[in-house]
Design a protein around this nucleic acid. Structure first.
Lengths: 157, 157
DNA sequence: AGCGTCCGGTCGATGGCGTCCACGGACGAG
DNA sequence: CTCGTCCGTGGACGCCATCGACCGGACGCT
């Protein structure tokens, strides 16, 4: 995980469809070498996936909701997580510090679907209460941020 | 935006580095045709970007925080949004229904950096108060979900 | 110092891919 | 019917992905 790896990651966070050849030019290595480095970054879990970032409204998921969950004592966090995972509408699931133990971010087509999802969540053992707010608008999402340490200089001759 | 487009989107949400040739095989069209469709989906904003999904901890961003903001009357939402956008640590920004007007999701290296970020946010005009909780663990994030309508069958025969 | 080994790089080859262009059928409007 | 538009196909050509062989520096042992 050196400066060149960090540069590769940063380039791919901006555009995951860059060719190995283009990446190689940007970091000043040969394409097979880039191929090798990315293979390692993928297999060690640094790069988890390559995803198309799609406008949710365009695929019928115009409603974004944040669901916060207060936990009842005497229930396993893992069991609750598994039950939440079974709801495909839940895009992200965080276990939180504070009064509310879980934050779920859900993506749905309609408010009616949200109502049904909340109903299903309330039936999960260990859920004491839920509090839901919906996003009126998304200003931005998943913006990549620069790394702490400056990325590689492509060591010119 | 037909069933084939939806299939392409779903395939690319799982793996944004699939080749045009592979996509073409999956949907039963020729590669140039897929190229054409994706170009349209990109230029109409349905596909916003292709991103590598990176383990935040691997790039020194092990702290995930949710910052909720109560708004003071008499300030423009847009002005506040612009100020928030200037903080690179803020990965996502939602304008919410409810008592707290904004939900910010921030990614940082240390708690000390979080403290500084909260300080900067509190200095933004229009911020009446902030409430922050940190994620103790991320159960999952950005999981793609299936579309409402069934995706394309690659019309055999 | 001399040597073996490992790691990570380059180079070369080849099969497949990306992408441009010209062409053609389906379909609706006049 | 005729035309225009849309959306697809196929061919061509240059570039890319990817594998294997080889190379050189770093390091540890004798």
């Amino acid at each position: 995980m050196d400066a060149i790896d960090r540069t590769l990651i940063e380039l791919l966070r901006d555009n995951a469809r860059l060719s190995y050849a283009e990446l190689a030019r940007q970091v000043g290595l040969s394409p097979p070498s880039v191929h090798d480095r990315l293979g390692k970054l993928e297999s060690t879990g640094v790069i988890k996936a390559y995803r198309a970032d799609v406008d949710p409204e365009a695929i019928g998921l115009g409603v974004t909701a944040m669901i916060m969950i207060v936990q009842e004592p005497g229930h396993e966090i893992e069991d609750m997580t598994i039950r939440f995972r079974q709801q495909p509408e839940i895009e992200s699931c965080y276990f939180m510090a504070g009064h509310e133990s879980f934050l779920l971010i859900a993506r749905l087509g309609t408010i009616a679907e949200l109502e049904q999802l909340i109903g299903r969540i309330n039936r999960v053992p260990g859920v004491a209460s839920t509090r839901t707010t919906i996003a009126l608008s998304t200003k931005w999402e998943q913006r990549p941020q620069p790394h702490r340490k400056p990325p590689a200089a492509a060591t010119p001759g």
